[in-house]
Structures are given as structure tokens and as C-alpha cells.
Simulated assay, not measured.
Amino acid sequence: MTTVAQAEASASAAGPAPITQPGIHPMSNDEYHSHRYALSSSGARKLLPPSCPAIFRYEQDHPQAPKKVWDIGSAAHKLVLGDGPRLQRIDHDMWTTKVAKAEVAEAREAGSIPLKPSEYEQVHDMADALRRHPVASLLFDPERGTPEQSLFWRDDRTDVMRRARLDWLPNPRSGRLIIPDYKTCRSANPDKLAKDIDEYGYHQQDDWYRAACRALNLADDDAAFVLVCQEKTAPYVITVIEVTATARRIGAARNRRALETFAECTATGHWPGYSDDVVPLALPGYAETRDTLEYL
């Protein structure tokens, strides 16, 4: 049986040397994601329903290639945060020709984000709209913080090394620490965002990032995590949200379950699917009601 510590020790053979000391460690985004022995917030969410450990492990072993659908969000992040891949304008409205395809491939090979002319203007307009927002502009003020900070710390209950890559770490100051995270979305309507919190596990991210700052003595228990959500279509509406106390408690409980699951799977080498047992399943409630009335 492999312990968590043994797994970290063997990680150097497959990637960078494991980080054993808690702290803020300068590194690129690619290097951050290569520290597989340390559990991230997105990984914690992938370990739990509606996903499972087997899917988490497969995605670790088979990283996804860049997708066009991600380009707008990644490019907007670059402009808002002031850190990230170079934006490469590809001066072809259609990317179906050999010349356009070659330029796109060359940009991706160089680590840049290729954008059509309209997309290039779009992300700049999004960043401009954010800078005009009375709250969002202050949260990402370049004079008040640092982008893309990689935090590592040890979970005292499972011995799992945890990691978080904060979009933005505010400079030390008196008062409450507010940790902002930038999200692009189809709708910044608060009712729609409530569903996104559940679907994407943003309440878990809230607890995870605040835990990182507390563990490294960057914040007290009253630290806040806020999501700066911006629509990707004009006029690029922005809504800044903070999840409720109940949502944070649920997020913390889910994170605790994920850490225990990660520790057990690491120690045993077994990454199960949805269940290792025979699963009894009833009809969906609506079908059972419908057919009971009709046939029973």
C-alpha cells in the first residue's frame, strides 16, 4: 500500500520535484498543473458526484488539448489579469483555408491564443468594460495585487498536499482580505449564476481558496471569496457575487470528503467508478407515478 508521502516522493520521476514546503511558489500555469500529487480545487470537485475518482484519474493521465471554445475565456483572463499567454490575432475571418489553419497551428505551437479579428476586439472590449465597473475594477487593480499565484499547503487531517492557483492575490493590507476570481459566462443574471454555482462547484472553490490563504497566514477566518462574472456578449455585463454561508458550509463538507477520497485512492492505488457494487435502481419518480396509475 502506498502512503500519501510515498506517492509524493515518487512523483519526481513523472514530473517536477514535489513541493514539500507550504508557501507561494512562483511557476507557470503548465508547471502548476504538473504537480499531480497535490490536490487542486477542480480536482476535488472531479472526485465527487456527479463525477467519480476513475474519471478524475483518467483526466489527470490524459490532459485535454486546447479547445477553441476555451479561447475567449482564456484571452479575457489574460487582459483582465495582465498575465498569461500571448494573444495572436489571425487576420482571417474564416479559418478553413490552408493558410489560416497553418497560422492557427503555429500560434498554438508557440503557446499563444489564436483569435479571429472579431474575437480580438471582443476580448479587448470585455476588458475595457471590466475596468469601467465600480467594483470589479478595484478588485483587479494592478496596483493592489498580483495575478496567477500558486499556493501549496498541507492538509493537517489527511496529510494531502493541497494547491490553488489564485487568479489574483491582493497585496497585504489591514482589513478583510477579498479574493476575487474572474469567470466568463453566457449570462451574469444572478438566477442563472446560482445554477452555475451548483453545476461547477464554485462554493467548493470558495472554501478551497479561503483555506489556502488561512493556511499560509495570508488571511483570517473572515476572508471573502468573490466571483467576478462577465458575459461574453455585448454589453459584457458584470455581476460580482459571494456565495452564502450555507453554500460555503456545504462546499467545505464536500471538500473534506474529496480530500479523504483522494488520500484513500492514493494509498490503495484504486480509483473507483461510480460504484464497485451492484446498484439497485428504480424508475425515475415521474415514470413510476405515470405507469403505476396506468398499469398497476
Rank of each mutant, 00 (worst) to 15 (best):
R144E: 14
E103C: 10
D167S: 05
K101S: 09
T97L: 04
L79K: 13
D71P: 10
R165H: 02
H124D: 07
T146H: 00
T146S: 03
A76G: 10
H124G: 10
E143T: 12
A136W: 08
H92T: 06
M161H: 13
Q88D: 09
T96M: 11
H133A: 15
A75C: 12
D155A: 15
W168L: 04
A127R: 06
K101P: 05
P172A: 02
A136M: 05
V104L: 14
M94K: 10
V135G: 06
P172Y: 00
S150Q: 07
P170S: 03
W153K: 08
T97V: 11
Q149L: 01
V160T: 15
E148P: 06
W95Q: 08
H92C: 10
R108H: 10
I90H: 06
W168N: 05
E121H: 09
R162G: 03
G145D: 03
H124K: 15
L81Y: 12
K78Q: 12
R162M: 13
V135M: 13
D156L: 11
T158C: 14
E143W: 06
K101R: 15
P134H: 09
V123W: 08
L79C: 11
V160M: 15
R163H: 04
T158I: 06
S174F: 01
V99R: 14
D156I: 08
